[in-house]
Computed example of a mutant assay.
Amino acid sequence: MVVINDKNTAAMDKAKNTNKPVKLEKWKSSADKSTPPPFSPLPENERIGYAVVGLGHLALEEVIPALFNCKFSRLAALVSGDNKKMEKVALQYGISPSCCYTYECFDELRDNPDVKVIYIILPNSMHMEFTIRGARAGKHILCEKPMANSSTECRKMITACNKAKVKLMIAYRMHFQPHTLKLKEMVSKNRFGEVRYIEAANGQSSANPEHWRHQAKLAGGGALPDIGIYCLNTIRFILQKEPTEVFAYQYSTPEDPLFKDTEELISWQMKFREGLIASCMAHYKVREIKTLRIHAERGWMFMDRAFAYKGQQLSTSRADGEEEIEEKISLSEPNQFAAEMDHFSQCILTKRAPNTPGEEGLRDQIIMEAIYKSANTGKPVRIKDYKY
Rank of each mutant, 00 (worst) to 15 (best):
I121N: 14
E323S: 12
F237M: 11
C280D: 06
M368A: 08
F259I: 04
L78D: 09
V79H: 05
T9S: 15
L58H: 02
L78I: 10
L276H: 02
Q365D: 07
S332E: 11
R287M: 08
L314S: 06
H295W: 04
L239Q: 01
T356H: 10
E44N: 13
I229N: 09
Y309A: 07
D107H: 12
V3F: 14
K7S: 12
L109T: 04
R173F: 11
F72G: 01
N112E: 14
L42Y: 04
K182N: 04
S150T: 08
I4L: 12
L265W: 05
R305C: 09
S40A: 14
K116H: 11
T253H: 08
E327L: 02
Y386L: 14
N149M: 03
S80G: 09
I4A: 12
V63E: 02
R363N: 13
P43Y: 14
P113W: 12
G378T: 11
A207D: 15
E199M: 09
V166Q: 00
L55D: 00
E199L: 07
Y103E: 13
E324S: 09
A219K: 11
R293L: 06
Q215I: 15
A15E: 12
L55G: 00
Y388K: 11
I294F: 00
K145W: 02
P334Q: 03
Y103A: 12
L224D: 05
E210P: 05
K328Q: 09
V53C: 05
Q250Y: 07
E245V: 07
K182F: 05
N355A: 15
A90M: 13
Y309T: 05
E322M: 11
S40I: 05
H295V: 09
T356V: 12
F272A: 03
N45H: 13
M147D: 01
